[in-house]
Amino acid sequence: MINETKGKKMNHISTKTIAGLLLLGLSSLVSASPESDAKAFKKYFTDRFPDVPYNDYINGAYTIDKSGRENWEAIEEFPPYEPFIDEGRAMWEKPFKNGKTFKTACFPDGPAIKHKYPMWDKEKKMVMTLPLALNNCLKANGEKPMKYKKGPINNIMAYLAYEARGKKINVVIPKDEPGALAAYEEGKKFYFQRRGQLNFSCASCHMQNAGLKLRSEILSPALGHPSGFPVYRSKWGTVGTLHRRFTGCNKQVRAKAFKAHGPEYRNLEYFLTAMSNGLEWNGPSARK
């Protein structure tokens, strides 16, 4: 009798335990809304670095790297990206062969338009990034599109980022557009997916190990990441775009990089920028 009761109790406990474990497992698979994701994202970093003022996250690794910050502030006194801004301004104002300019042909609200991107394009049913929109404009006006990682794209992006400095990041995922939420979810999945020979995800470095050292470098927090782009990297010796950095990150974990402004990186930019909603745009910037 005693054994039977014990057995029943054990069964009851084990059923409860299994149910609990299943619920725990399921909760980690259930997708949350973009708003609750952003809230959790913010909470993760504010809990991890309680002394860092929230608005400071726009400064990348220098948010948490004190000695690096001193050097960076010295660099910012004579910003290495300034000539790129000037070149970009000239590009913005230079008429196309048809006489139109970027402003008159495609971006009447410009040049301060960077804060509007990435956005969900209702007509094309895809995430639209600013470099892609610029190239679409060039193509529509009979001009040759720019390369996405190196060259003139960095000049015009530096200028447009400079013009949008101080504006708030506000990525909208329209609720009446199921494709927009799907793109956001794809970007989120990409962010947490492990890839490459090193089996790292974006989050492995920039969430789980943010603030720790990778060789001599302090890993930057993901919060506020897109704010400073395009960035002048001393390593590159020039200004580079966010998608060039995505490419570099993927290569560093020994994964094959995806195409700049292809669906994978566009969706990733959509998710990553949405996580920084409320922070300011602070590009262009300087980084190691």
Binding site: S28, L29, A40, F41, K43, Y44, F192, R194, A203, Q208
Partner: peptide
Amino acid sequence: EQAMSQKELKMPGYFKF
């Protein structure tokens, strides 16, 4: 194999709602 194992989104334990 890696890509297939990561097909579904698995939120890491440190990311808490």
